[in-house]
Design a protein around this nucleic acid. Structure first.
Length: 451
RNA sequence: GCCGCUAUCGUCUAGGGGACUAGGACGCCGCCCUCUCACGGCGGAAACCGGGGUUCGAAUCCCCGUAGCGGUACCA
């Protein structure tokens, strides 16, 4: 099995493209086949080197490796020109100066039931001759057979007047030359497939097998675009998702295992994926489910692995201790710092949290009680810290939160943090007392004559 | 306009003539756990686009309609 992923470098790799790449990759890896990467850069206006790099980066981050390429489609211009000549010599293609407007006008006058057929001229763009009669049938592994009657097809332009070729021609030649056996791509290509089939037929080349994947839509049900958040692989990466989780989630869009399994490792994906399991209705990208899938993958990581991921993501080291007490509370890598940053950078500034717990009333005196107990905890380990703080709760005869929340705000600056005992033990006695004292000083400035 | 694809809870889906009082997952709601936030556990609300057929029987097959999407470029 030889498959290919052929993005066009006109923008970043979005999740639709990423899923197409993933499905091809899964098929190649699952069958011991070959994945060819081809860059469809024949549109010189919109293709850029930056985009190519960005796409390769995205694929590398997703850990989708390829066996051949990347080959530039534009670099194959010689070969394309050569085949073009063959087609013209054989009478399968011809030059025509007809413009898009001419085609429109033609269809206006001939009605909808007659595709455009141009005159053979000495110059102009090159059009493929579509037979007047009959039909071209696209056999699709996902959709079955789709019949395209030739009467509805216009003779498509396959090369510009200067001889540079267009997509529907180049793609057919390149897939054939690369001996691609299965063309797996988005459904947006289905309607163009007969043109490619016609090119191959004119050349007497056996066509590959096709599989057109249902398209991906944004959360609003509309076609995915730059307007949608997290639409590109780069954005997913920045949002703190794990490549394995993204692969898992993307696989679930349009495909599902026979049972109700939702969390799959990449090995399982490779083993279980098949085109037969791919549905045919478009799917919407739902970031909330991605978050959940990501959480499951993230929590399956060992402490060392997660620490490494987090340190790379945040760009700091020494995060291990905080990771140990916060791992279960985060779903993405990006969740970590807002939750634990205070451990390293000091308490956050959250006026609302302050007002609620230490602003007035009995907050400060409860914090003082906690300070007193913690000052004596010996040794300053988790068990002793917990015992000390629970003792304060008991003596005060209040709910645990009434002691713990003021303390949490004193230490973290906010009402949300890892477990309070863990946090205190991690900060250590000195730092804990220092922060409590700072909070107390701020909450109750000493009266002028108290000293 | 024309050609084509698609249509099950809000979302991803299971289902491929009787096993369907339509199953699971995310999300949502409630309860439990609980020091906050999460995690976890338990429970709940929530869907076969509409209309015709075919059949003893249709979510499942066929037709029509509707809607969404794609194509209709000297873009890919």
């Amino acid at each position: 099995m030889r498959v290919r992923f052929a993005p066009s470098p006109t923008g970043a790799l979005h999740i639709g493209g990423a899923r197409t790449a993933l499905f091809n990759w899964l098929l190649a890896r699952g069958s011991g086949g070959t994945l060819v990467l081809r860059i469809e850069d024949t549109d010189r206006e919109r293709s850029t080197l930056e985009n190519v790099e960005q796409i390769l980066d995205a694929l590398r981050w997703l850990e989708l490796d390829w066996d051949e390429g990347p080959v530039s489609q534009a670099a194959r211009a010689e070969r394309h020109r050569e085949v073009l000549e063959t087609l013209i010599d054989a009478g399968s293609a011809y030059r025509s100066t007809a413009t898009a407007d001419d085609v429109k006008a033609y269809k206006q006058s001939h009605g909808a039931d007659r595709g455009f057929r141009g005159e053979d001229e000495p110059e102009g763009a090159i059009r493929l001759r579509v037979p007047d009669e009959g039909a071209t049938v696209v056999s699709d592994a996902i959709r079955g057979e789709t019949v395209f009657d030739h009467v509805h097809l216009d003779d498509p332009v396959i090369a510009r007047a200067d001889g540079s070729v267009l997509y529907n021609f180049a793609v057919a030649i390149d897939d054939a030359d690369a001996q691609i056996t299965h063309v797996i791509r988005g459904e947006d290509h289905l309607s163009n497939t007969p043109k490619q089939l016609l090119v191959l037929e004119a050349l007497g080349v056996e066509p590959p097998l096709y599989a057109h994947l249902p398209l991906l839509h944004g959360p609003d049900g509309r076609k995915l675009s730059k307007r949608h958040a997290a639409a590109s692989v780069q954005e997913l990466r920045d949002a703190g998702y794990l490549p394995a989780a993204v692969r898992n989630y993307l696989a679930l869009l349009g495909w599902g295992p026979d049972d109700d399994t939702a969390i799959l490792s990449t090995d399982e994906l490779v083993r279980r994926f098949s085109l037969a399991g791919v549905g045919n209705a478009p799917a919407q990208f739902d970031e909330r489910k991605l978050r959940w899938v990501n959480g499951r993958h993230l929590h399956a990581l060992s402490h060392a692995e997660l620490t490494a991921e987090l340190e790379a993501f945040i760009g700091r080291t020494g995060l291990g201790p905080a990771v140990a007490i916060a791992a279960e509370k985060i779903q993405t890598l990006a969740d970590f710092w807002p939750l634990c940053g205070f451990i390293y950078d000091g308490p956050a500034d959250d006026p609302a949290a302050w007002a609620k717990t230490l602003g007035a009333d009995v907050g400060p005196e409860r914090l003082a009680a906690a300070r007193e107990a913690l000052a004596e905890a010996q040794p300053f380990e988790l068990a002793e810290v917990e015992a000390a703080l629970r003792g304060v709760v008991e003596r005060a005869g209040v709910k645990p939160a009434q002691i713990f929340q003021p303390l949490r705000v004193a230490l973290a600056g906010t009402t949300v943090s890892p477990g309070i005992f863990e946090t205190v033990a991690l900060l250590g006695r000195e730092e804990t007392l220092r922060r409590i004292d700072a909070a107390l000083a701020r909450t109750a400035p000493a009266p002028p004559d108290a000293a």
